[in-house]
């Protein structure tokens, strides 16, 4: 078979690593739940980019004559208490979830990798400080800490924005105020969620340092960078990818949670969490207003969890959870 031949060819031309990734991909593709996760992720990206063009309404556009309606031909998912189109708001919620998930994941990954690597490589008091900080962050009830930081941070951000406005006349339109919320959530979640990745990266580096082949290469005169590029990166990438995937879902969930509590995305902005809390009073009379954003949120969070699980099985086969 030609497939066989090409696989063999690959084995010769590319050392191990490539076939490891291929194996992982093949295994991932055999996991139906993980496929579901991939599908959800792609759908989320698509909707967050093209969402606004998919619906004829504006997500802040109110129609007080048509409030709390059920699904109909012109409002497929009905309208909320201010007569805003539910579908439009859910599509915009996808954008919020995705963008917040993205910036928070980037933030926590950068912070986590930098702090974890610094601790592992520099050791001594740097390491002690990083680990101490992680311990302390962990000691807090995380959602309360995030809520607290976002309340504090929001005030500072608003002050700064006001300052810019007075000083330079930079104003911010109503529609763009939601980006201030992104900033607030980004700040608070990054500060609360960095430690997982820091510990992971630190642990990977330390465990790899113990391995004999690294010592042997060091003895042969390999530089730190060679070792980092040839062993550390390929070895830590798997766990890090899993952590990033799970963290992405986690960040989106946290955004929804903060918005649900009223300290995340502020009202005219659309967030699934904010929509749930906003419509919660309607659960008895118009259950769909609560259920729809809830189901969408659940599907996305589940999708990312399944994907994370699937990636974990595929990339770290030796420590399979199931």
């Amino acid at each position: 078979m030609t497939a066989d031949a090409s696989a063999q060819h690959d084995m010769f031309s590319m050392p191990e690593q490539r076939s490891l990734w291929q194996d992982a991909l093949e295994q991932l593709m055999r996991n139906r739940l993980a496929i579901f996760g991939v599908f959800v992720a792609f759908l989320l990206v698509f909707v967050s980019i093209f969402g606004p063009w998919l619906s004829p309404y504006d997500y802040t556009q109110q129609n007080l004559f048509r409030i709390n309606e059920g699904p109909s031909a012109d409002h497929w998912l009905g309208t909320d208490g201010l007569g805003r189109d539910m579908l439009t708001r859910i599509l915009h919620g996808a954008r919020t979830a995705f963008l917040v998930g993205l910036i928070v994941t980037i933030g926590t990954t950068v912070l986590g990798v930098v702090l974890g690597a610094a601790g592992a490589f520099l050791g001594g008091w740097v390491d002690a400080l990083v680990m101490r900080l992680a311990d302390i962050t962990m000691a807090f009830p995380d959602i309360l800490l995030a809520a607290f930081i976002s309340v504090v941070f929001r005030e500072k951000v608003l002050e700064f924005q006001l300052h810019l406005q007075e000083q330079y006349g930079w104003t911010i339109s109503e529609g763009n105020r939601v980006y201030l919320d992104y900033l607030v959530i980004f700040g608070s979640l990054t500060l609360v969620q960095w430690y997982g990745k820091a510990r992971l990266v630190r642990g990977q580096i330390l465990s790899l340092r113990e391995k004999e082949f690294i010592e042997a290469e060091r003895a042969l005169g390999a530089s730190n960078w060679t070792i980092i590029l040839s062993h550390l990166v390929p070895n830590s990438l798997g766990p890090l990818i899993v952590s990033i995937t799970v963290g992405f879902g986690g960040a989106m969930l946290s955004e929804a949670s903060l918005s649900f509590l009223g300290v995340g995305i502020q009202p005219p902005g659309a967030s699934w969490g904010e929509m749930i809390s906003d419509n919660l009073g309607q659960w008895r009379f118009n259950p769909h207003l609560v259920v729809m954003p809830g189901v969408v949120l659940a599907i996305v969070v589940l999708g990312f969890n399944f994907l994370g699980d699937g990636l974990n099985d595929a990339l770290n086969p030796e420590q399979r959870r199931r």
């Binding site: 969490g273 749930i276 809830g294 949120l297 659940a298 969070v301 969890n305």
Partner: peptide, 11 residues
């Protein structure tokens, strides 16, 4: 376990 309480609760 993945679905948050504020979705499961109302449902």
């Amino acid at each position: 376990s993945s679905i948050p309480a504020y979705v499961i609760g109302p449902v």
